[in-house]
Amino acid sequence: MNWDWSAVSDFMPHFWDGLVVTLEALALGSLISFALGLVWALLMRTPTRWVRWPVGVVTEFVRDTPLLVQLFFLFYVLPERGVTMSALTTGVVAIGLHYSTYTMQVYRAGIEAVPVGQWEAATALSLPVRRTWTAVILPQAVRRVVPALGNYVIAMLKDTPMLMVITVLEMLGQARLFSQQTFRFTEPLTVIGVAFVVVSYLASLLLRTLERRLVR
């Protein structure tokens, strides 16, 4: 095993560039998945099955198929249909869409966990449906599900390397580029492997603090 610290220091500037892109994709992907997941969860509660059924099938399909192939699909099919997005945008949309099918279930569980009495109280006060959701149900439901959503942020972090396949230069993309130019594989790949462990560990610490604050 030959480890070369100078290769590590050569790689570090690229590493920071990659880390920024990774975190960027993670932040935007999380926002999309949180918003879209809530939309799916609310649609699944509409009274008509003509909405529930298609939403259920589509989200089940997205959840059970590989993100990698979905990335290829969006990256190659959308331009054929005349929609052109940058690689990073495509990746962010794909990750957000994929994980929205997970966060949707988290929201659903959160909404179902709101005590029935809260619904009854809202009915008794004859609050309109909109106010019932925005002022009574969602504030309680979302507060409960923050830790579970955080777990999916960490899962998303570990899926960002897939963006490499659609030419996004995030951490793994930078590492691969660097190894192809210098024929040093051990150092860049180990550096980013350690970086993932460190970042996800920090994220889980942050999450635990958040959990203590929000869930009482």
Partner: peptide, 14 residues
Amino acid sequence: GTSALVMIFWVFFV
């Protein structure tokens, strides 16, 4: 903690 894809790269290259 680490990503599956990074692990695959590691097994294949390192």
